[in-house]
Design a protein around this nucleic acid. Structure first.
Length: 230
DNA sequence: GCGACAG
DNA sequence: ATCTTGTCGC
């Protein structure tokens, strides 16, 4: 019995990948508020690459949403499956991220992604994609505005301004630290934009980026270094 | 056609 | 993403 690769699982060409996004986009749920901030668990996922050795490492770190203490963590290592193409980031990151999530000993709760959800050329970024594949509530918190426009939010933490694709609000620029460059929040799956921003603020008591992202980033780098030294 | 472009 | 030391400032 041979295993058949379907484009929906592992698209090879950019054309296939865009077709997958167009097909899966219909499954995104946007009419749920999502879990209340500060309750349950929040999980950060991130990925690090070694293009030379063709190795990718992903990490998932589960935090108690109230205390931000680490509850559980896991990593996964694999081969790079897709090049970086703006708009197709999910195909590069998701296979290994799914493996890391699968390796967790407990449910992840809300998943915070490093990148975008709705704020995407086809309204189906990494966070939306991961949400649809797992059924989990997801949000995207990115460090850059991508191709979208925004006015500078007020200088104080908590200030927001719409992230715009033309006149459509696809996310928000959210100031998480006074007078520090904002982050760019968008809805992934099963979470409202207001709630996504509230979660992001709850996850940034001390630094610009969410604790989830910081923890996952540190862990996947460690996992990559460990994988490379073997 | 050219440039820009999450990580 | 990744290559990379010191340095200015709270």
């Amino acid at each position: 019995m041979t295993t058949v690769r379907t484009p929906a699982d592992r698209p090879v060409t950019e054309e296939e990948a865009r077709a997958v996004q167009d097909a899966l986009r219909a499954r995104v749920v946007l009419d749920e508020p999502g879990p209340p901030p500060g309750t349950g668990r929040v999980t950060g996922v991130d990925v690090a690459y070694d293009d030379e050795r063709d190795v990718v490492a992903a990490a998932a770190v589960v935090l108690d949403a109230a205390t931000l203490d680490v509850v559980a963590e896991s990593t996964a290592v694999g081969r790079i499956s897709f090049p970086y193409v703006p708009g197709l980031l999910a195909f590069r990151e998701i296979p290994t991220v799914l493996a890391a999530l699968d390796a967790l000993p407990c449910p992840p709760g809300l998943v915070v992604c490093d990148g975008y959800g709705l704020a995407h050329p086809r309204r189906f970024g990494l966070a939306s994609h991961l949400g649809v594949l797992t059924g989990l509530p997801t949000i995207g918190v990115a460090k850059n505005p991508f191709t979208f426009t925004h006015d500078e939010p007020g200088a104080s933490r908590g200030s927001v301004s719409p992230l715009l694709a033309g006149r459509e609000e696809v996310g928000r620029a959210l100031r998480t630290r006074n007078a520090v460059k904002p982050v760019f929040v968008s809805v992934g799956h099963r979470v409202s934009l207001d709630n996504a921003c509230a979660h992001t603020l709850a996850l940034t008591p001390a630094y610009r980026l969410p604790e989830t992202t910081r923890r996952a980033d540190a862990l996947c780098r460690r996992a990559l270094a460990e994988a490379a030294s073997r």
